[in-house]
Amino acid sequence: MKTANYFKNVSLTALLAMGSFVYAQDTADADNSTNIKEMADKACDCAEKISVNLTREETVEEINSCITAQITSNQLMSSLKGLIEEAAKEIETDSTAVVTDTITDEQIKNINISINSEENFEEIQAYMFANCSAVKTLMASNNIESKHSMSKNKKALEFYYEGLDYYEKGKYDMAIVSYNKAVKKDPKFAFAWDNLGLSYRQMGNYKEAVKCYKKSLEIDPTGVTPLQNMAAAYTFMEDFKQAGETYEKYIKLYPNDPEGYYGAGRAYYMGGNHEQGVDNMFKAFKIYSETKSPYISDAQQMLAFFYQDLEQKGKLDIFMQAAKNNNINIQDEEE
């Protein structure tokens, strides 16, 4: 895992380039793009086996393990294929040579296979984040169960799963009806309150969504989903003060989760508190990088936007001070 020292020499040119991030399949040659897609698709199959009942950090670690395993497997197969091809060439100079598609233990011992598990890692990760439905589902899941997460009331559960079905079909108005029935049957059904809030949010009714998240937090004050989504709802309502304060509560509970810092960074900056906005975004960027999170590109783009916006406002010192506070040395390559 990288440490803070990794960030000591971030160049200004590289930072500005962050704002125009594109996926590798748009810039790499056709052959490499095809190879990345093939590895990403296989890693996606691996991701489908990952449990949704994990923390965000554990989820990212599992996804990254799928990617690393696929890269290693691909490089090993390429190396072994090369060995077979070399053996095939022997027939050209030695008529007695026998070529097979079988590699002996002795041949494997004698070949120097160098595996680089980092090769194409970011490109594969970015492709999966954009195209792998399993990864999208995992990264959207925060349903870590607590005492009152699920209900033991059979009728409440029936309405809850009915709501899930409506929600997945995009029938948010019907989902609202079902989830309301579920919480009436069991007022302490936290997940039902969470999903009711999500449904109201999809309908653009942020005030009702906030009320649902507050109900959920009364049941479980440490709930990940209600805290994150309540902060997001406040952001949509342009109540940046409340959004920032809610993200701060999330950060206190989950200091190692970059989502809190990222959300706080956006909320504070949009609310005019540039100092806290940039500082929190740098914190999010560092954790995303350390955990190799596919969300790192979002933080990169936000930092690039902050830099350009503050430069236009003549307040670039705010950006540089925040970088210094986070042990990041921004260097201009032209100097």
Rank of each mutant, 00 (worst) to 15 (best):
M18E: 05
F240C: 00
D105H: 06
Q202E: 11
L157G: 13
F21A: 04
G271N: 11
E158P: 03
A30C: 05
K181I: 04
Y23M: 09
L16P: 00
Y268T: 05
T55F: 05
R266S: 07
Y247G: 06
S199H: 02
Y206C: 04
L227G: 08
K313Q: 13
N120P: 07
E61F: 11
E145G: 06
I318C: 01
G260K: 14
I115Q: 12
S33C: 09
N112E: 10
M39G: 03
N143M: 07
D257K: 05
F282W: 01
E259A: 08
F306C: 11
Y288Q: 07
N142F: 14
G204C: 04
Q202P: 08
Q300G: 12
K152N: 13
A284C: 03
N180L: 12
T3D: 15
P221E: 09
Y172A: 08
A323P: 00
A43H: 04
G272D: 06
E248V: 09
C132D: 01
N142H: 15
A47E: 10
N325T: 14
M203W: 10
S149Q: 01
Y250F: 15
K2L: 15
D41T: 02
Y166T: 00
N32M: 14
N5P: 02
F121T: 12
I84A: 03
R201N: 10
G277D: 01
N327D: 10
Q300N: 13
S149L: 01
K313T: 08
T246I: 06
E259L: 08
P294R: 01
Q321L: 10
K184P: 00
D317Q: 13
S151F: 05
I330D: 02
I103K: 13
Y166M: 03
K283W: 01
A69K: 15
E61S: 15
M150K: 15
A231N: 08
Y254D: 05
K181C: 08
Q300P: 04
I113W: 03
T55Q: 06
Y250D: 00
Y167R: 13
L310M: 06
M39F: 04
N116T: 11
A182Q: 01
E275A: 12
K169S: 12
S33P: 07
S133D: 12
G204T: 05
N229C: 08
A130I: 02
R56D: 04
E311F: 04
L54W: 06
L227K: 11
K292A: 13
I71T: 06
L217P: 01
V177K: 02
Y295K: 14
Y254R: 09
G170K: 05
E168P: 06
D332L: 05
M39L: 07
